[in-house]
Amino acid sequence: MAQRFGGTFSPAGKNDRDYDARPLKVTVSPTGARSNLLFVPGVILAFMSFGSGPESLALGLAGAGTWTLAAWLTREGLKAESAYHSRKVARRPALPRKIIGSLLIGGGTVLAGLSQDTGLAAAALYGVIGAALHMTAFGPDPLRNKSLEGVDEFQQDRVARVIDEAEAHLDAMKSAIRRAQDPRMEARVERFQQSVREMLRTVEEDPRDLTASRKFLGVYLMGARDATIKFADIYARNRDSAAKSDYLMLLTDLEENYIAKTRKLLEDSNSDLTVEIDVLRDRLQREGVRLD
């Protein structure tokens, strides 16, 4: 995929080439135009409410507000659903945003219908149909916790909690680096986050790795977040190239450590498998079964 910055002849392109070695995974926004377009009818309703008397105006504005809230909840629900699907161990969203969005679409449609003098019966029918169509178009929220087969639920809960905290640190880093207003630095931080997320997925698959990687997902990540916040403040103020180079070195060091640790965790999982195979072979041989 083409990038608008960072080529050989771009400003500072040659100096910064060394940290672009790993390809950046492109993530598509789960919301898209379909949820953003839902904001449009609310705006139309707000405009159409003027000029038909105070009662119609009040109902229209209330309906527009309800629709806007529903559209916002739907968008947040789609984001939460995408995060749920991208993880192997996940808790269901605490608030069923899309279902509440469906109900609010119904309520907003009733108010909109009343503001246009359609009558209570017709407005209520439009409301129910609106809620049904919204539910059909966007579906319900995930209503069950997602867990791996054969892994202790308590351990999975612990992992899910640690991963939630780690994701919060990553989000804080992302929003902090945006303040620096440097697309190359944003891409660099995103690449670092990619290596952290690889570790998160590894821990999700085998919760026994949590103890070994706890420092990486807690203290180190918190340190990286704090350093990012400080760097973004300094760099946004005076574009300090020394601070940029120090920060880049820190990110490179951290990234290398995260990659090495993830590799180590995967190797440990492989050696666990080898031990299990050896134990099973021994038992079968003791039982008199030959494996050739």
Partner: peptide, 24 residues
């Protein structure tokens, strides 16, 4: 496909109610 049709109907219905095209 089903979701696409439902989405188009939903959008049309909301716009229709908002503008008053869909009456009693």
């Amino acid at each position: 496909g089903v979701q696409k049709v439902a989405y188009i109907c939903l959008f049309a219905m909301m716009t229709g109610v908002a503008t008053g095209w869909l009456g009693a």
